[in-house]
Design a protein around this nucleic acid. Structure first.
Lengths: 238, 238
DNA sequence: AAAATAGTGTCTATTAGACAGTATGCC
DNA sequence: GGCATACTGTCTAATAGACACTATTTT
């Protein structure tokens, strides 16, 4: 049985969440876009395989970002070439998308997740699930900082939340929450002044905190749903 | 590459959480205990494979319970016979453990999770992760009801929480929380009187609610940890 | 009566969320 | 001055957790 990894690679750029998609030049789904990914080697661990395919296909090395497994896709028939069990990874990349290196064989580019539609295979579903996973993780963890550059302001962190949750947050309450979480932010001492004026904003680096406790809830709009569970049933393998 | 499923099958019995373990009669790890599970057929979906192995090895049909995928174990070398990617499932079974059918080839029995140690392969880790997954899920979902019989009292539901979290909860506050969650419980009208006296307790069946919102937090003791994440790193594939 | 259990009522500390207000920068 | 941004302070409603209290059963 073939085992593959697929990557939902995300970065926030100009207040918007973007994802990496490769343009397929081969059968099947020629001409469609797809998530980066590919088969796992016999002696290769899964995170290594995910990092390797990301590097090979996009020139991005995940070392600065965060790689996290979030789902499995194994329905027989999901790949017309044969049975493939695919392990889905979320790759969170800091700040501006690293310029994509065109490695010759594949063309890859960043596109707003809102505009990512009709991907090959079941990748629409994988992207959707990955986003939903991220949305929930942002409530309980400090993962949002991995979508920020090494030094960032509280506003930048807030923009990450707003982009992922597709909502707006009160800047004042968000400031307080960020500053009151122990070891979430470490002040660098320097400041940054935006192009549109306003008071200088403190610059911070990531602290060691991994967990947000109490969590930061997303506003009512986006549904805090735990996924349906049928009596017999399963999930995240649709 | 071989793809397998492994099951952390759980039930609450006499205020204690129990898990299913099969006694291995073959190489490798002969004589050790292991989690139920086995290879996935070429044309078989993962939840089907999980249900099939549970039925074959324990005689328990998961139809009355709940099956949910929670992790992947794929480190090269985790099985001495060759590369195996294992998908881990949680099986939550209602009420008293169904008597285990000895199917001849394997011996299987229930044992308290506290006493489950030194399992074959990396099954200690899988069991640990599965329990941790369940503990977190109980905070945010109504899954605890799937560990109760079809009709149950609020006390029985509380005992499930106490067994999984290895803690004690205030019965009065728990009652209020359970009763105030919309469509968590449906009164059957009948009552049940325990062997040790006390007022009659209402009997309920599961409602349609899947999500606990706001969540039911576990007391400070058990760590609400989101799992470490290294800069490069990964998780749930250790 | 004593002990155990079920469930309600009440109080307090904490938190989320709304928003006024102040300070600092650009145009 | 006018406007945008950063951040602090304050108020209110909701919630978690502690625990008194009543009711109902067995022993």
């Amino acid at each position: 049985m073939n085992v593959a990894v697929d990557l939902v690679a995300l970065a926030v750029h100009r207040n918007e969440l973007n994802t990496l998609a490769v343009h397929r030049s081969r059968h099947p789904f020629t001409g469609h876009h797809a998530l980066p990914g590919g088969l796992v080697n016999d002696d290769e661990d899964l995170p290594d395989a995910a990092g390797r395919h990301l590097l090979e296909q996009t020139g991005i090395r995940p070392a600065d970002g965060h790689l996290e497994q979030f789902g499995i896709y194994a329905t027989p028939g999901r790949d017309p070439r044969g049975r493939v069990v695919s392990i889905a990874y979320l790759a969170l990349l800091p700040g501006l998308p690293t310029p994509v290196a065109d490695t010759g064989t594949t063309t890859v580019d960043w596109r707003p997740v809102r505009a990512a539609r009709r991907l090959a295979f079941d990748h629409d579903q994988i992207l959707f699930d990955g986003l939903e996973h991220l949305r929930t993780r942002l409530e309980h963890t400090t993962l949002a900082t991995t979508l920020c550059p090494p030094e960032f302001t509280i506003s930048e962190l807030r923009v990450v939340y707003e982009a992922v949750w597709a909502t707006t947050l009160d800047p004042r309450n968000f400031s307080r929450k960020a500053l009151s979480t122990p070891d979430l932010l470490r002040p660098t001492g320097s400041c940054w002044i935006g192009p549109t004026g306003g008071a200088p904003a403190g610059l911070y680096t990531r602290g060691n905190a991994k967990v947000l406790y109490p969590p930061l809830r997303r506003p009512d709009g986006s549904a805090p749903d735990a996924g349906a569970h049928a009596p017999i049933a399963e999930e995240s393998t649709r």
